[in-house]
């Protein structure tokens, strides 16, 4: 079949964004992948020829632990952010217009302060001599020798703090478009408040949740400033290793190898989301399924 006018039209319309994506995303990514297989030279550049040297370095037994920590910290930060932001987005979307604007403003207010300053502020907050620590000890909630800083939990807390607005905003955008009459319809049909929320509201804002998931999970995987500042030696993430390879070892192929690995770790969840969105839910059961 010859391409119709319509497909020609589609090709013309999509070409610019396709070129944009290839030049600014795909090509650099492929370059990074390719650099993994180049030798490093003495001056932090790339040597001639190709080698598998970097892959041998990547087999370092430290890396699996760091990668695992990166993934679970990112997954936990994403999950906590979603669990916190869904009710918040619901509440903001249902608030009166005045209150809604105020709450949205509060959500984005942290962006007006430099990211590094906010991270160092957390360091002060969680510091052994800090206000939070002393308050918790005084209240008898933690023992005096507990450390709030320099551990994976501190990294997690600060990651949630940092990425929460990125979860609230897309979920709010979806909730704002949601028709809240549908919740009344669900309750009218016998659903409790919670069931209506679960079976009608959550599917209704599904796209917002998926966007929020990507907006939190992907930057989390790449974070290195947060573990660097509030984390300790046992809470390093893969981002820290990449930074070390670049700035300390001046070994670009090694950094590229870790980077490529991280990119793959990002692309896999992307593919999962894509599959979930593609899959058409809502097929009525067949007779065999019922019987």
């Amino acid at each position: 079949m010859a391409p119709s006018r319509r497909t020609l039209h589609e090709i013309l319309v999509t070409t610019p964004s396709f070129v944009w994506l290839s030049v600014l995303f795909c090509v650099p990514t492929l370059i990074v992948f390719a650099m993994t297989f180049k030798p490093a030279d003495m001056y932090g550049g790339l040597g001639p020829g190709w080698t598998l040297e970097t892959l041998r370095h990547l087999a370092n037994p430290n890396y699996p632990a760091i990668i695992w920590r990166t993934i679970w910290l990112s997954a936990a930060a994403t999950l906590i952010s979603l669990v916190l932001s869904i009710p918040m987005a619901y509440y903001i979307a249902r608030a009166t217009p005045g209150l809604r604007n105020a709450l949205l403003l509060l959500t984005i207010v942290p962006f007006w302060t430099n990211f590094l300053i906010r991270i160092f502020a957390w360091k002060i907050l969680l510091h052994p001599e800090g206000f939070l620590k002393r308050a918790l000890v005084a209240a008898g909630i933690i023992a005096p020798d507990t450390s709030l800083l320099y551990n994976p939990e501190a990294v997690l807390v600060v990651m949630v703090y940092t990425y929460l607005p990125f979860a609230i905003l897309p979920i709010y955008a979806a909730a704002e478009k949601f028709d809240f009459h549908l919740l009344e319809a669900a309750m009218d049909l016998g659903a409790s408040r919670l069931t209506a929320f679960r079976k009608v509201f959550l599917p209704g804002i599904r796209r917002g949740i998926l966007t929020a998931f990507l907006m939190v999970f992907i930057p989390s995987l790449g974070s290195y400033v947060i573990p660097d500042v509030v984390g300790g030696p046992n809470s390093e993430m893969i981002g820290n290793k990449i930074a070390q390879r670049v700035f300390v070892d001046r070994n670009l192929p090694h950094a590229s190898g870790l980077s490529a690995f991280l990119t793959l770790a990002v692309l896999v969840p992307l593919a999962v989301v894509w599959v979930v969105q593609k899959r058409t839910s809502g097929q009525p059961p067949t007779m065999q399924e019922v019987a």
Binding site: A185, P203, G204, G282, P284
Partner: peptide, 9 residues
């Protein structure tokens, strides 16, 4: 406005 659930068949 009928309020049918848009995500369900």
């Amino acid at each position: 406005n009928y309020a049918l659930f848009p995500h369900l068949s």
